[in-house]
């Protein structure tokens, strides 16, 4: 079923919207949730929560990219769940690793509180990503948006794990420089 047809089902308040969403994007959403939560039951619950959020958001919303819309919902839901649940224990899943890596990107001097979770920071990251070649950009997104394990990226991109790590290491350094520069310019 095409995305627009699924969205129409939401607009008609047809419960088939959920089953159609599950059929088409269930695996995608579950994978995102599972990577964050490392628990089948929690992941499934977050996927269901995300469907419910979509149900409440459409209408009035009409997402242009349903897959990305759902992905963001389930990612946010899962991150919030992780904060609240026992899954926050150290060493579980990709989150601690990704966070540890991202720590390297934080500028030494920054307008900390002004940035917060603001759109400015997202915009700055987007500018950084668009300045990268497509493979590098996608590897970065696969790692820090989808939280894909290094091993999986190495397999999919035909590179050694150490090479993926090196590439991400360089990109984090570049992002740090980029953020420092943006901070200076803003």
């Amino acid at each position: 079923m095409e995305d627009q047809e699924i969205i129409e089902l939401y607009w008609k308040r047809s419960e088939k919207a959920i089953s159609a969403t599950e059929e088409k994007y269930g695996g995608y959403c579950y994978a995102i949730a599972y990577r964050i939560l490392q628990n089948d039951e929690d992941a499934q619950e977050c996927v269901n929560d995300a469907y419910f959020s979509a149900w409440r958001a459409i209408p009035p919303g009409r997402p242009e990219k349903l897959q990305a819309f759902l992905g963001k919902l389930v990612r946010n839901t899962s991150l919030n769940r992780r904060k609240e649940s026992h899954a926050q224990k150290r060493g579980e899943g990709q989150i601690p690793l990704a966070l540890s890596e991202l720590e390297e990107c934080i500028p030494a001097v920054t307008r900390v509180e002004e940035y917060g979770e603001s759109a400015e920071l997202t915009n700055a990251i987007e500018r950084f990503l668009y300045a990268q070649t497509q493979p590098k950009r996608n590897i970065f997104i696969r790692r820090y948006w989808y939280l894909s394990p290094i091993r999986e990226l190495a397999k999919e991109y035909g590179m050694s794990q150490s090479k993926i790590k090196s590439l991400l290491f360089r990109m984090r350094k570049e992002l740090k420089t980029h953020l420092e520069k943006e901070d200076f310019l803003l």
């Binding site: 242009e64 966070l99 990107c105 979770e117």
Partner: peptide, 26 residues
């Protein structure tokens, strides 16, 4: 800025970027 802020900010990047990364991997 906290590392969690970065993770959250990355979470809100444009849809095209998110989908492109999946398409590329396939």
């Amino acid at each position: 800025m906290k590392k969690e802020d970065l993770l959250n900010a990355i979470g809100n990047i444009q849809d095209d970027l998110i989908l492109s990364a999946i398409d590329d991997s396939k």
